[in-house]
Design a protein around this nucleic acid. Structure first.
Lengths: 338, 338
DNA sequence: TTGAAAGCGCTACCAA
DNA sequence: TTGGTAGCGCTTTCAA
């Protein structure tokens, strides 16, 4: 069987209390004992049981990460950053892909709670914010990434989605586009709403009109984006000359839709994405997109929630990172312009 | 504070043993008591602590998943499949991105063991197989996915990498290619070795010669693939007319290298990838690649390891899935042929 | 059918 | 400096 603290204590001829102290650097222990104990631990291949210590000490050194889908490169990259940072502090992270379904969110949260995770990082869209406020009232440390829960006092790291939207609008306008459309995922996702609001504002600022009918909503998958874009392209009336997509996956769908509809990108249709995942660099044409500093965001949320874990009454922070426009080849001057 | 089994027992006027039995469906309990207890649990929002029950010798319902990098779409998709399947059985999965570094593998394994995970699924390349055999000798349930550890008796799910290599070779040869090259990640990854072996065999079968110097090894990142492909393209002597890349990421690197070197794909250079991740569908041109049934593989490993957890002496299985060639537009007849 | 009590491995507090 | 010991929340005999 695996060695326990008792085995070590017996072997060293001391009490388990002393071994525990040695391990945790508590109390005073003579150097000699200390070294002796460590040597024995090594010989016995002793590894303290996090489970047992969690039952007393309280921490499990495990975090839950709620995201829509780990197979979405945006979240995979964020997850990687969080994981790296967490691992350095001895934390593990449990991934929970929710597909933005409240029902899954609730199941996962219950599971995470029963496993006594030390905190939960949330990057998933949630309809019913009560779920979160309940969590908070049960004093489970929370942090949000790439999503906002403005009704809650909770540590948050987001890119400035509004500014991102503005950036996209400005870019498109500067290329002479006047007939714009938007492809967005479910509006229950706060970041999507902000992006659209920013996009609108960016257009309004320079007097370009924008019609609400030009917004198409769909799920966050490529397939859906394609369907949505197709709808936009096949509508009666004048076709938009540019589409702002609320994430790279949808932008890819739009590119595919354009291909299928025989519309050239960027000559006949400019497309702007959001996120700047690895996908944006490999598409045909490479995607002009609003870049979020994913790695940085991931590392930051972990630091935030860690601060929270170490110091119960550390002050809540909301960190907003500025996105940047990465111009590639999916956007160009509107046809007929200089 | 969170409700405990004591609170429920007190409220119900029974002993904790009875509550425990009710929860776990053990022993005999009168229906009346049973229902009463459940009602109280609900009212108190009682959730049994997995931690505490794990300490009593039961399971933690947590699995570790070792992969090279969760931000690699291939592993992200596999992780998603495993996660879904696991969640259905009440299991959580902790992701561990190792970058194929033994040092990281060891750190993660130690962490997972100290957290008493019920099992570990391994999809990462490992140099020192002793790490695994030690794990096994400590009787930690193991399962491999997309990797082999032939020296160990362990549940395994892989695509038939050898056949995949053959498929790629046959396809290229059928297009008239004779000067072939290979771009592979580190050969310590068993699957890469097999793919190359299959590729070779496929060529040999039809009498096309292949020179070991045409194999370039690099890390698994796009950047590295690009560098490697560039080397291949800029060598003196005749340029290869086709490159077989051991995964999609490298294939993308190769596409980028070709662009940079002014070599057209597929007219001047055909490229075949491996995996068929989402990336393959969006590249320019879309990638011809050997498809692995990722979702299926993920679901299968979980089932395998679960069987192992539920029935200690379930027999070891090695499941080999047949890959398929997905032909897109990165391959074509060699220039000058019909 | 139900309950009392002995742990599981570890931490923390109080004595020695 | 050290050790004894009371839990942490739950499972599991063994009796009642």
């Amino acid at each position: 069987m695996k060695a326990t603290i008792y085995d070590v204590a017996k072997e060293a001829g001391v009490s388990i209390a002393t071994v525990s102290n040695a391990i945790n650097g508590k109390g005073k222990i003579s150097k000699k004992r200390r070294e002796e104990i460590f040597k024995i631990m090594e010989r016995l291949q002793y590894q303290p049981s996090v489970i047992a210590s969690a039952l007393t000490g309280k921490k499990t050194f495990t975090l839950g990460l709620l995201i829509p889908d780990i197979s979405n490169p945006f979240f995979a990259e964020i997850a990687r950053a969080i994981e790296d940072e967490a691992h350095q502090s001895g934390y593990s992270v449990i991934i929970c892909s929710t597909d933005n379904k409240d029902e899954r969110v609730e199941r996962y949260i219950a599971l995470l709670e029963s496993k006594s995770v030390d905190g939960i990082i949330i990057g998933t869209g949630i309809d019913n914010m009560d779920i979160l406020s309940q969590l908070q009232s049960r004093s489970v440390p929370l942090a949000m990434i790439a999503r906002e829960a403005s009704s809650l006092a909770v540590d948050t790291v987001v890119a400035d989605d509004f500014v991102g939207g503005v950036l996209a609008a400005e870019h498109l306008v500067s290329l002479g586009h006047k007939r714009l459309a938007v492809l967005s995922e479910n509006l229950k996702v706060s970041s999507s709403r902000e992006r659209i609001r920013g996009f609108r504002q960016g257009l309004a600022d320079v007097g370009v009109s924008f019609d609400d009918n030009s917004i198409v909503i769909c799920e966050y998958k490529v397939e859906e984006g394609k369907r949505g874009a197709l709808e936009l392209l096949q509508r009666g009336g004048e076709r938009p000359t540019a589409i702002f997509c609320c994430n790279d996956l949808l932008a890819i769908g739009a590119i595919q839709a354009a291909k299928e509809a025989g519309v050239r990108v960027p000559e006949d249709l400019s497309i702007v994405g959001f996120d700047d995942t690895i996908l944006a660099t490999v598409t045909d044409p490479p995607l002009t997109t609003v870049a979020q500093p994913m790695e940085h965001m991931g590392k930051l949320v972990f630091k935030l929630i860690l601060g929270h874990l170490q110091n119960k009454d550390s002050i809540r922070q909301r960190i907003v990172l500025r996105p940047e426009l990465t111009i590639r080849q999916s956007t160009s001057h509107v046809a007929g312009e200089a």
